[in-house]
């Protein structure tokens, strides 16, 4: 097997893995404090891609600014959604699940009516390739990997070092106890939901130039994010990162050596195996 090919596959797997990790981090963050499995999370990713398309193709705003704008817009949208649709069901798995499905359908179709079903491409901001130990890797993909790493590290610092991060951890640990210590549950939940949605939107903006944008793109990353958080343990941020790296690697090598369906199957088989031996996932705790 050609070494450069292996390297190229690894780097591509890394990029996809990073995007999935950023989506999964938002999902797992929301689950950890609200016990909501948000099926509308993929729609936030899609909205991010859409914002990127409008702002870069129609208004020609610089890309880094678009990234920030998309995160703010979708983040605020997430906060509104949380307030009206999820707050009544906080901590209740089933009704929140149904509401998120209803939201996903509504958002997707509303987008479809305004946007059409055509694939739209977003032009790249970092043209050109770089040669890394003989493997060709586009600058764009490298930029994506680096930006994602920056996001992951900032989120880690936010959760571990800041006051609001401390409150988030407290709620994830024990909601009542946190409330008794004077943590404002409503405010933290709405902040976290907004943050989770903003992360999904960021992933959507970042990957938009590599793939294309249409109202259906949210489904796949949602599926991958689910796999990642089961693998890593629901509610665990470290688990999401490790799970994403495992999935990205397994899928890109599976595709290289086997086939696309076989590599997808491999991902699911790994989940089942992990859950058999550690039901709460690699880094989860009961």
């Amino acid at each position: 097997m050609d070494m450069t090919l292996l390297l190229q596959v690894t780097l591509n797997g890394l990029m996809l893995g990073m995007i999935y990790i950023v989506v999964a981090l938002g999902l797992t963050l929301i689950f950890s404090i609200m016990n909501v499995i948000n099926f509308a999370h993929g729609e936030m990713y899609m909205l991010g891609g859409l914002v990127a398309y409008y702002f870069s193709e129609q208004l020609q705003i610089p890309y880094m600014l678009i990234l920030v704008l998309a995160m703010i817009l979708v983040g605020v949208f997430g906060i509104v959604v949380e307030k009206f649709f999820f707050r009544p069901f906080r901590g209740e798995l089933l009704p929140a699940l149904i509401v998120s499905l209803g939201l996903s359908m509504t958002i997707q179709t509303l987008t479809l009516l305004n946007f059409g079903t055509e694939d739209q491409s977003v032009s790249t901001v970092f043209p050109g390739m770089i040669n890394f130990l003989g493997a060709l890797f586009s600058k764009e993909r490298l930029a994506i990997v680096i930006t994602c790493i920056v996001f992951i590290l900032s989120l880690y610092l936010l959760i571990q070092r800041s006051k609001i991060g401390c409150a988030i951890r407290a709620i994830a640990e024990d909601r009542e106890a946190a409330a008794l210590q004077g943590v404002n549950i409503d405010r933290i939940c709405s902040f976290t939901f907004g943050l989770g949605c903003a992360l999904a939107a960021a992933a959507g903006v970042l990957i938009a130039p590599v793939f294309y944008v249409n109202p259906y793109i949210g489904g796949l990353p949602l599926l991958k994010a689910f796999i990642i958080i089961i693998l890593g343990g629901m509610g665990s941020l470290l688990g999401a990162v490790v799970g994403g790296l495992i999935l990205g690697t397994v899928e890109s090598f599976g595709t290289l050596f086997l086939s696309v369906p076989a590599s997808n199957l491999l991902g699911f088989i790994i989940i089942i195996l992990v859950l058999l031996f550690k039901p709460s996932g690699l880094f989860g705790h009961e």
Partner: peptide, 20 residues
């Protein structure tokens, strides 16, 4: 949520096998 997600994974496996 854990059982829900495992059944989700199992469902995907079944469909993947039937289609590919």
């Amino acid at each position: 949520a854990y059982f829900l997600l495992v059944t989700f994974a199992f469902g995907e496996i079944v469909i993947l096998i039937f289609s590919n």
